[in-house]
Amino acid sequence: MSGIRNLQRMRFPIILAKDFVRASVSQVRWYSDGALKKTCLYDFHVQNGGKMVPFAGWSMPVQYKDSIIDSHNGVRNNAGIFDVSHMLQTKVTGKDRVKFMESLVVADIDGLKDNQGTLSVFTNSQGGIIDDLIINKTDEDYLYVVSNAGCADKDLPLMMNQAANMRSKGLDVNVDVISNGLIALQGPKMVDVLQPGVSFDLKDLPFMTTRSCTVYGIDDCRVTRCGYTGEDGVEISVPSDKSVELTENLLQANKDVDVRLAGLGARDSLRLEAGLCLYGNDIDETTTPIEATLAWTIGKRRKAEGGFPGADIILQQIEDKPKQRRVGFTSSGPPAREYLSLKPVI
Rank of each mutant, 00 (worst) to 15 (best):
K137L: 08
D172G: 04
L182M: 15
Q195S: 15
N148L: 01
T118S: 14
N161R: 13
M166E: 02
D108N: 13
L202N: 14
A164Y: 07
V193N: 05
C151E: 10
M208Y: 09
D110N: 13
D141A: 11
V177M: 05
S199M: 13
L171D: 05
I178D: 12
G197T: 09
K189R: 15
T138R: 02
G187I: 00
M190S: 13
G117V: 08
S212P: 10
G197L: 10
S125A: 08
A164C: 02
N115T: 02
S125K: 12
L202Q: 15
L171A: 08
Q162V: 01
Y216T: 10
T118P: 02
L158D: 00
K113R: 14
Q126C: 04
T118M: 07
C213L: 11
A149Q: 00
Y144N: 09
L156S: 05
D155A: 02
V146R: 03
G127D: 04
K113D: 10
P206C: 11
I178Y: 06
G117M: 14
F122N: 09
K203Q: 12
F200Y: 15
N165F: 11
G117A: 15
D192L: 07
L158R: 03
L158V: 02
D131W: 02
M208T: 06
V177A: 05
T118L: 06
D155R: 01
Q195K: 12
P206L: 12
Y142S: 04
N180K: 14
T118K: 11
D110H: 12
Y144E: 05
D132Y: 07
V121H: 04
G128W: 00
T210P: 05
K154P: 00
L119G: 10
D108G: 07
K189Y: 14
